[in-house]
Amino acid sequence: MRRRLLGTVSGVLARTRVYLAADAIEVDEIEGYTGTRRRVLLDEILLVTLHRRRRLLTVVIWLVFASVFSFPALAVGRTTAKEAALLAAVFLASPFLLGALLHLAFGVDVVTVFGKRGVAQIAFSFRKRRAKEVFALLRERAQEAQDRARGTSAQPRPPEGSTSAA
C-alpha cells in the first residue's frame, strides 16, 4: 500500500507529516523519536476547507529574534560609531524582519479535513498552488471513496450466517 506525502508541519516540539494513503489520510505526529499515527478515513470525510492564516504570535516571534540579533550592535552604537552600528543592527535583523513581512504579506495556507471521528490539518507556508492542488485532490479522493462506498452499500447483503470472508 503506497502513501503519498501531502505536507509537513514543524513546531517547536513536534513535527507532523500528513500522507494520502489508499483509503485514508494518515497523520504522523512525531514528538522526539516517538510517532503517533492517526487516520481520517476518506469515506468518512464531512468537510474539506482551505483558508489563509496570519498569526500574530509568528510575527511577534520574528520581531523578538530581530531585536535579539540587533541588540549587540545597538548596544555598541550607544557609545561609538552610531551610523555603523545602526547599519549593522539593520543588517543582522533583516532576515527576521523579512520573515515577519513575508508572513504578513502571504500568510500560511491551511487545508483542513473534518472526518466523522477526527480532523487533519496541512499547512503550506510558501507553496500556495500546492495548497489548492491538495484541497482539490482531497475533495476528489473523498468523493470517489464515498461514491464507491455508496455503490458497495447498495449491493444486496449476503444471507445471515454466511461463512464467506468479506
Partner: peptide, 20 residues
C-alpha cells in the same frame, strides 16, 4: 473567510445485525 467543500459520507446503520 474560507473555502469549503461539503461531502456526504454514507451513513452506517447504528444497530448491528442480530446474532444467530
Amino acid at each position: 473567510e474560507f473555502t469549503a467543500a461539503v461531502l456526504r459520507p454514507v451513513e452506517v446503520p447504528a444497530a448491528p445485525a442480530p446474532l444467530e
